[in-house]
């Protein structure tokens, strides 16, 4: 198996060093570069073409969401995993809606981070319990039946169950076992939720993101 190429983007040098050390313990991961703000990150991503960009949410030049917006048109194959100390709902949802395939907090352990990177690289989504909680909150409540695009605007019963289990701290494998489905199916559900989160034009979703500062 080819090692995973990862680019680390964060404005704190100490944090970059820490992540690099943590990731290099795993032979399956190679850190191909680092960047410290939006303006250095975009050319670095385009030059190194990593499998996954590990992206800080708050960064000089407009933050992680801006990096994604600038890179994706030129390199749609690059995947992003957002990593932040901020748990603010609007930041989490903002970076996901910009195109990140997952969101983890900086307190995540090294092994979990490597696992999340592999997952994102293979095209799956990474949902932390907190992100799952945000999703459940954002898609909570009834909406009128006549609303446009309702497929995108609400979760299926199964997707809700999966989100609830993730919010309860279950790993994908445990979710699969609990619901008597395969891990692959869990991944399909999570990716579908990610798609809805990114594409839903649901009025409540944007309103929710700006309304709720405390969750």
């Amino acid at each position: 198996m080819n090692p995973l190429h990862v680019l680390v983007v964060d404005d704190h040098a100490m944090f970059r060093t820490g992540v690099r050390a943590e990731l290099q313990k795993d032979p399956g991961v190679v850190v191909v570069g680092e960047a410290e703000d939006v303006d250095t990150a975009v050319p670095a991503v385009l030059a190194t073409r990593p499998d996954v960009v590990l992206l800080d949410v708050h960064m000089p030049g407009g933050g992680g969401a801006e990096v994604i917006r600038r890179v994706l048109p030129q390199a749609p194959e690059v995947r992003f995993l957002a990593l932040s100390v901020s748990d603010a709902a609007e930041d989490v949802i903002g970076v996901i809606r910009a195109g990140a395939r997952g969101y983890v907090t900086k307190t995540i352990s090294g092994a979990e981070l490597v696992d999340a990177l592999h997952r994102v690289a293979s095209g799956d989504a990474v949902f932390s319990p907190r992100l799952a909680g945000f999703v459940l909150d954002a898609f909570a409540g009834t909406i009128e039946v006549a609303q446009v695009d309702e497929d995108l605007d609400r979760l299926t019963e199964r997707e809700r169950e999966v989100m609830r289990l993730i919010a309860r701290g279950y790993a994908y494998k445990e979710v699969a076992k609990e619901l008597f489905i395969s891990v692959k199916t869990v991944e399909t559900h999570v990716s579908s939720v990610l798609r809805k989160l990114q594409l839903s034009s649901r009025h409540e979703l944007t309103k929710w993101a700006s309304d709720r500062r405390l969750i």
Partner: peptide
């Protein structure tokens, strides 16, 4: 973070 351009305002 908004003031220092670390995040995009809505």
């Amino acid at each position: 973070a908004t003031r220092r351009g670390l995040r995009v305002p809505g």
